[in-house]
Design a protein around this nucleic acid. Sequence first.
DNA 1: GGCCGCCTCCCCCTTTTGGGGGAGGCCAGA
DNA 2: TCTGGCCTCCCCCAAAAGGGGGAGGCGGCC
Lengths: 230, 230
Amino acid sequence: MMIRVMVVDDQALVRRGFSLVLDNEPDIEVVAEAGNGLEAIEAAREYQPDIILMDIRMPEMDGLEATARLLQEKRTEAGDTACRVIILTTFDPDEYVFRALQAGASGFVLKDIPPEALVEAVRTVADGGAMLSPGITQRLISQFAQKLGTGRNLAERLERLTTREREVLAAIADGKSNAEIAEALFIGPATVKTHVSSVLSKLGLRDRAQAVVFAYECGLATAGGRDVGF
Amino acid sequence: MMIRVMVVDDQALVRRGFSLVLDNEPDIEVVAEAGNGLEAIEAAREYQPDIILMDIRMPEMDGLEATARLLQEKRTEAGDTACRVIILTTFDPDEYVFRALQAGASGFVLKDIPPEALVEAVRTVADGGAMLSPGITQRLISQFAQKLGTGRNLAERLERLTTREREVLAAIADGKSNAEIAEALFIGPATVKTHVSSVLSKLGLRDRAQAVVFAYECGLATAGGRDVGF
DNA sequence: GGCCGCCTCCCCCTTTTGGGGGAGGCCAGA
DNA sequence: TCTGGCCTCCCCCAAAAGGGGGAGGCGGCC
């Protein structure tokens, strides 16, 4: 099964370089090239590559924007351009990584990686995996661990709460009013007030808004899962 | 510069296998082996390895616990055991990855990786990078992108707010009362009420607690940075 | 100039919230 | 058995929050 690759970079020489390296592999076929984001989107429609190697800095439309559009199409139209994107760049500021992953990229590697590693990255991503430069993986892990780590100290405070109180706190962190909590937990509104009071007092908080903050900070509530369809 | 490695696994055969592969490299030296977490901690103290390959499932003390203790020492005593840990396991449940990264591991690879890749992983981590199995990187990215992605739709609603209103929302998401917001923004409490009201009305929220939820969900506030020293 | 959006502040009002008690039932551990 | 923690609900009360107006100043835009 050939892996169909498209190379997107505004510098023709760079493009040819990558293409040659990849085309040299028996299981990889470079089916298209593009010089900017707009061309990339068109070419992707026409040639249906499996993998797109995308530069960031390009005229007309940069690689991040193009990636976002390509993968958004994929998500909405479903099955059209079911390709996966590897961002290939010389620079690695956090901001780019951030936006690249948000756009849906499956890889983020620096252009100075050895050719074999690039080939391996293409195979890995074609296989459903993801590949980041070691340093980037490192930072991603740090950020992740940080989010978990901070929860530690606060999670201890959480343990001073009874089961019911934690349930109430979770409901508060859901944006529910006391009446709604009562309904959700099948108890009276007065009881909810009691629980809310002990939650606030035990955690040293002043009002439910601070309780929501606390819930998010300690990991009881996490951004991303919720609908916010209040 | 030789990379000093320690291999920790309860199965002697597995241990020997990895050791042989690594010792065969000119720049890598296996300086110790251990059969469980306790031994690993002792041996690490004695042999000061740069890299520890750590299995998870082991008697006495598992690899995650050992990793956490080793790296906690490192953080507190500073400079003692300045090693980095690669978790090497047959299983890859999310839960393990989660805990491994929290413990401070710099790598998480499955035992079925090809020997060259393992060697490469050791070099990468010794070099300050991090290495995850492709599938794990993939999931880490998804989780990360999810947290960012949901912010998209909500961030649009955010743009309906004026600058001042966003400032007020941020203050609400900080757990501040109207009076505190007034003080922080150098405006009167009545003005704060006005802003809060328009924030709630523009975003379709009912109370400040929901506003806090919204702020976290859309990324205006993020878990991890705050003190919660209310 | 006139219009409009934004920021600022004021009034009055109702609802919610949070604090301070008290009280009964239930269950586990001393 | 009895004590203590937990869950449940009640009372009263003060403070805060939220909704509904109105109004003046200010800067941009047509």
